[in-house]
Amino acid sequence: MKALTLVGITLSSGVIAGIILAFLNLGIVEPTIDKAIALEVQKQVSSGENVNMSELIDYRYWQKAGAFAGGAIYGAGLASLFGVVFVFARSKLPGKNNKQKAILLAGVMWLVLFLMVALKYPANPPAVGDPDTIYHRETLYVGYIMISGLAALGMAVIWIRTRINSKKIIIPLMYIAIMVTAYVVMPSNPDKIEISMDLIQTFRILTAITIGVFWGTLGIIFGSLWDKFLSREQTLAAKLY
């Protein structure tokens, strides 16, 4: 496949999957965000803070509309990583066609880059999170993603180089051992939770589902486009030579 085609299908599949994610979030996740913001405002009002409601409404409009731009940007970014990994992993991935391979890889990436990380640093709705600790929490979050991602990458390399199949069972266990160690060693989220845990748990489950759907959609679109453009390029090459 041509490199420019790779960039094209990677970015377009990411943007499409990201916009689908934004639509899903609008129907599924946004109600919990609205509830959390209402609780946040209630708390501010009861503590005597002056809340400018019209400014808040403007902000919410901007934030909800921005979720589509955010989805497209988020999708393009994760698809870029997905595209790079797929290029190197494609020949080693099981599957009858590239769509199946892409869906499998997307599932693994959701598990490694979202679910494993969420066990230690789960998603939180608004009303949870101290602005003073934001950079600390961002560093912990990105650090944990990198630990999980690099550990999985290392295990994949070992998996490919291990010739005796019976020994391969140890490899996922090694990844789990690394993640358990990271879970124990890495500091916890320093912020206190002061709103209903039910709301937070609902938010966490819903976001895990929608992000899972995002990865699945990305795999389906990317794999389909890969198969389509690869066969088109092969047909064109056969005509030319």
């Binding site: 979720a67 608004p126 934001i134």
Partner: peptide, 16 residues
């Protein structure tokens, strides 16, 4: 931050 606010929360990134 405000533009990507809701997606930031939904994607699991720390916010606020």
């Amino acid at each position: 931050h405000e533009l990507t606010h809701d997606m930031r929360h939904a994607a699991g990134f720390p916010c606020h």
